[in-house]
Design a protein around this nucleic acid. Structure first.
Lengths: 106, 106
DNA sequence: TATAAACATAGATATATTTCAATGTATCAA
DNA sequence: TTGATACATTGAAATATATCTATGTTTATA
């Protein structure tokens, strides 16, 4: 099972600061210094979070001189949502023939 | 910001066993004993994970005699995906006028 | 070259999470 | 009533995570 990679990607969104960063990037790219002003965290902490978001594929980045520019990855977002959808889904027409073994234990 | 609750919900899917449980429930409800047979974990560990999934709203349950019956919550899944989509999204037509402050520092 | 700015890395600490063994509770059956 | 089954709770141990301070690296500028 390749759950480990998916868990790692989903963990990108399990931190309040990283959620705030995703919202901050929704209207276009920003550099690290801009993000630092919006979030009450230190620069090393921001660096830590941006690495996690970039590794997940949700955030793209490029370096321009001294500045790192971050933006939401449209492809990353699409793939992320598809991946989430593969777990957060249900076959709503429940097939009783595959229901649980307790039925037979009665 | 109400990020804390969303982080808590997203954490429901950041464990390999809980992802396996979501897949195991995709074709209909199952009782705890069935899930125990599929997952190489102890009963208290399963109980722990089911509580987290139920608290997130992704999984419904009811008790029937000795047995707990678990199933995917269609409403929970829909709300979960909408919540994820509020963070994993981008306004793809980037408005340059709102780009980051570094532009002016040059 | 020397300095400053932006960012990354290393190390330490506090907290959170996963897991299990042991035990408790509720339900059913003999 | 007694024993067995299914599940929950408690407490402990190992691991992971978030955060900071201190420091290193890269780039631009005086």
């Amino acid at each position: 099972m390749g759950f480990r990679e998916d868990v790692k990607k989903i963990k990108a969104l399990t931190d309040e600061n990283r959620l705030a960063i995703m919202l901050a990037l929704q209207h276009g790219e920003k550099c690290g210094c801009d993000l630092l002003e919006e979030l009450n965290i230190t620069q090393p902490t921001l660096s830590h979070h941006m690495k996690i978001l970039a590794d997940s594929g949700l955030v793209d980045y490029y370096k321009e001189g001294k500045w790192m520019h971050y933006s939401i990855s449209a492809d990353g977002v699409r793939e992320f949502r598809e991946m989430i959808g593969s777990y957060a889904r249900c076959d709503c027409e429940t097939d009783e023939s595959v229901s649980c073994g307790c039925k037979e234990k009665k």
